[in-house]
Amino acid sequence: MSFLQIHDLARRYGSTTVFERVNFSMAKGEFVCIIGHSGCGKTTILNILAGLDAASSGTVVMDNREVAGPSLDRGVVFQGHALLPWLSVMRNIAFAVSSRWPEWNRFQVQVHCQKFIDLVGLTGAEHKKPAELSGGMKQRVGIARAFAIQPKMLLLDEPFGALDALTRGTIQDELLRICEATHQTVFMITHDVDEAMLLADRILLMSNGPKACIAEIVDNTLPKPRDRLNIHHDPRYYGIRNHLIDFLVNRSKRYQSGKIVNLKIGGVAA
């Protein structure tokens, strides 16, 4: 029994089907990225996993329990960071921590928050308001907030989409480091093929909407631990990368059948 099982998920708005026949599962500690063009319903899938949205049909089972509504078991890092602008960095995270452990006193909460502020490299910015932070720092707070509640699964909705390449790189490194240290189960939406290859164990490729579905599941065979600066020297790197890009450019449009192709393209390029 997998940790997370998604069975025959579909979402319809009236007569329009955004996606259907979405089936996949995730093991505990696995990092899965989902890639697809805009409008294929990636965010809707993530929201359903988060419990913020409901599927039209199909089921999501996590840790032997059906997902029906939001839960502290699933931490979400929102696309637009979604920090509460009237609270400082510390208090934004404390809001989450005291929701998770309401019995904790102020001191316990603060110590716990500080640990995660340090973890994402925001030491010294504890008492700043979100408006005083750069985009990258805001997203770090969002990540710290999600990690701080120690959820069973982390859901990331294109967390680095709005960041410049340099900042994105550093935060990717941090995320990689934290995930390796905590063995966190992560489901992440991204548009960035390189990001997916750096972070993911498996990459789900969605065909274009309407009636989108998961067309291919690509096992990322690049060895771990991965290093952002050297990963592209791996002989397998461009094989996988070309495969993913080809999907986005060509196959995502043509894909019609409901059959998922499961690929291991380890040695393709070599």
Partner: peptide, 11 residues
């Protein structure tokens, strides 16, 4: 999104 934050935290 602020309300969603509260929802995911089961506030």
């Amino acid at each position: 999104e602020w309300l969603n934050v509260a929802r995911t935290l089961e506030v």
